[in-house]
Design a protein around this nucleic acid. Sequence first.
DNA 1: TCTTGACCTTCCAGTTACTGGAGGCCTTAT
DNA 2: ATAAGGCCTCCAGTAACTGGAAGGTCAAGA
Lengths: 132, 132
Amino acid sequence: MNIGDVSARSGLPVKTIRYYEEIGLVKPTRGTNGYRAFGEKDLHKLAFLGRARALGFTIEDCRALLALYEDQSRASSDVKRIANEHLAQIESKIFDLKAMRDTLSHLIDECAGDHRPDCPILENLSTPPLRH
Amino acid sequence: MNIGDVSARSGLPVKTIRYYEEIGLVKPTRGTNGYRAFGEKDLHKLAFLGRARALGFTIEDCRALLALYEDQSRASSDVKRIANEHLAQIESKIFDLKAMRDTLSHLIDECAGDHRPDCPILENLSTPPLRH
DNA sequence: TCTTGACCTTCCAGTTACTGGAGGCCTTAT
DNA sequence: ATAAGGCCTCCAGTAACTGGAAGGTCAAGA
């Protein structure tokens, strides 16, 4: 399979696949013309990577997960630990974003949004937060 | 004020302030010794930047907000539009993260997390999603 | 056979918003 | 006089790609 085929079948952009080779996540062989030659296993790996990335795992997480996936003797607890750490990070991001959203939507509600220059959004940003 | 003083009073790292100067967000004058000399206005601007960044506005958002802030004639609707666009991005990030969290925590629940090799997390990642 | 267009290759640079470090000058206190 | 600490610039690195230039390859149609 050429890179265009794996791209179509895995859903990953061609550039991304080349990048994944560069950082050692996949190791396709080369044909006599210099083209990368991918096998079904590579395709499988790339699809795995695409799904793990879509779940927000970092590349290094993915590398670890792939290693665990290919290690017949690993315990499921190893995988669970990585997943749990990642879950905690996601939860904390959600928490932070919710706080931002609440503050921001509060400010937006208070802003008239008309032609007048008064704007609570800017006023809030320009004033140090009050400490109680 | 030297950069260390504005850093302490604005809460921004020294490196960050230099970077903000580099990209033109602040323009401190220079003393004869080459040191940056910041005024109260610069401090105010930097604090503004710190708060806007904490709300997740991008640097370019901040640049626009600062320009609006310094423009006496701008309408509050201009600011409100930027804030609303940003709010929509935040909402969508929260949505995506929640979807990730739900999928991931579901997988984690199903994983025994013991010494055995079977792991639903990896199985899911290695299997194309079912289409109904 | 020639040409066209779609693929493929490598390499370089840019993205975001900083952060770390090296090497060196300046200031202040002892 | 010297030592500590603050300040300066410049270079490089981070995460995970993405875009583009310059050029080789392949398959199909005229």
